[in-house]
């Protein structure tokens, strides 16, 4: 596998490659250098995306480290490969691609003594050969790199896409007042979602204060807003919305909020926790909000 090729490379007359011949050392080095170049670019982009805080738009925070490590690891492998290639120039060029020659391997330095034609098509077809067809692969691999050079990604999903993901939300209609009990405030959207599904947790939290960050969603009802947070587990494609409802004290207050906050704006909601039963039997977290209960907030990714 790791034979060293002689520039003359006596593989026999019948040994044809449909994309390159082993005698073309220039081609071999060109392919290897292109591989080093494109993989190096991939590694650099991974590091820069971490550095420029662009990963927050596409993956969960727990993957930031692994992408950075992947980028650094790739750069290390590329650097090593580059040094090896550099060393081999002018010496014995190391031909170390990972294919076998139809049932025979070469030891280092061993000249291939297979008869002409022993390197069958199965080994050396353009499609399967280890270092064949690198050029179109470079083009495909360059796609994410070009997107990065264009400054993408630079935002999250569009409003239309987010609305489609959120779907329609049922009315909660008239719900009774909730007695404010004070106590420790809830700050976590997820905790509220979990609590809505459990009798015990609903009882424990109802009437207590909450201070939650999320995105505002206009609703048809005059005194209600939706509140949502697109929760990403691994990457943006698996985002699922956590939802709650904001019920304001009076419709005029809702109008005032609408003047200050646009649809899908990031807000911090301060209110009292309540749970409302929807028509389908499920419970939804409701935040009862008074004057000053909505403030602008920085996006949370």
């Amino acid at each position: 596998m790791d034979h060293i090729i002689d520039p003359a490379h006596p593989h026999g007359d019948g040994h044809d490659h449909d994309h390159h011949d082993h005698g073309g050392l220039g081609d071999y080095y060109l392919e290897q250098l292109l591989a080093v170049f494109i993989c190096g670019a991939f590694g650099i982009v991974a590091v820069l995306m971490y550095q420029f805080d662009m990963l927050k738009f596409i993956v969960a925070e727990k993957f930031f480290g692994s992408i950075l490590a992947g980028g650094i690891g790739l750069l290390a492998v590329v650097a090593l490969r580059g040094v090896i290639l550099w060393r081999s120039v002018g010496h014995e060029p190391v031909h170390d691609h990972a294919h076998d020659h139809s049932g025979h391997d070469h030891a280092p330095g061993e000249v291939c003594d297979a008869p002409a034609g022993a390197h069958g098509d199965a080994d050396h077809s353009a499609d399967d050969h280890a270092h064949g067809n690198i050029y179109w692969r470079i083009v495909v691999l360059a796609f994410p790199i070009v997107l990065f050079l264009m400054g993408l990604p630079n935002k999250t999903f569009s409003a239309d896409y987010t609305e489609a993901k959120l779907g329609s939300e049922g009315k909660i209609g008239t719900i009774g007042d909730v007695a404010e009990r004070g106590g420790e405030a809830t700050y976590d959207f997820q905790s509220l979602s979990i609590a809505a599904a459990s009798d015990d947790k609903r009882r424990a939290l109802e009437g207590t204060p909450a201070k939650i960050k999320g995105q505002l969603r206009y609703m048809p009802s005059p005194d209600e807003f939706g509140l949502f947070y697109m929760k990403i587990t691994c990457c943006a494609t698996d985002a699922v919305p956590l939802k709650a409802r904001i019920k304001v004290e009076r419709p005029s207050l809702a109008d005032a909020f609408k003047k200050n906050f646009k649809n899908h704006d990031w807000v911090e909601v301060s209110g009292t926790i309540q749970f409302a039963k929807l028509e389908n039997g499920e419970y939804l977290t409701v935040l009862r909000v008074k004057d000053g209960g909505l403030t602008k907030a920085a996006p949370v990714y």
């Binding site: 990963l55 994410p144 990457c235 494609t237």
Partner: peptide, 27 residues
């Protein structure tokens, strides 16, 4: 433009999330 934006996020998210694991597999 919003369709392109959504495509880019959906596309690039999978590629970069998978990258370190493919590298690990390759090593």
């Amino acid at each position: 433009a919003s369709v392109i934006q959504d495509f880019v996020i959906n596309f690039i998210a999978v590629v970069w999330q998978a990258m370190p694991f493919i590298l690990l597999g390759a090593l």
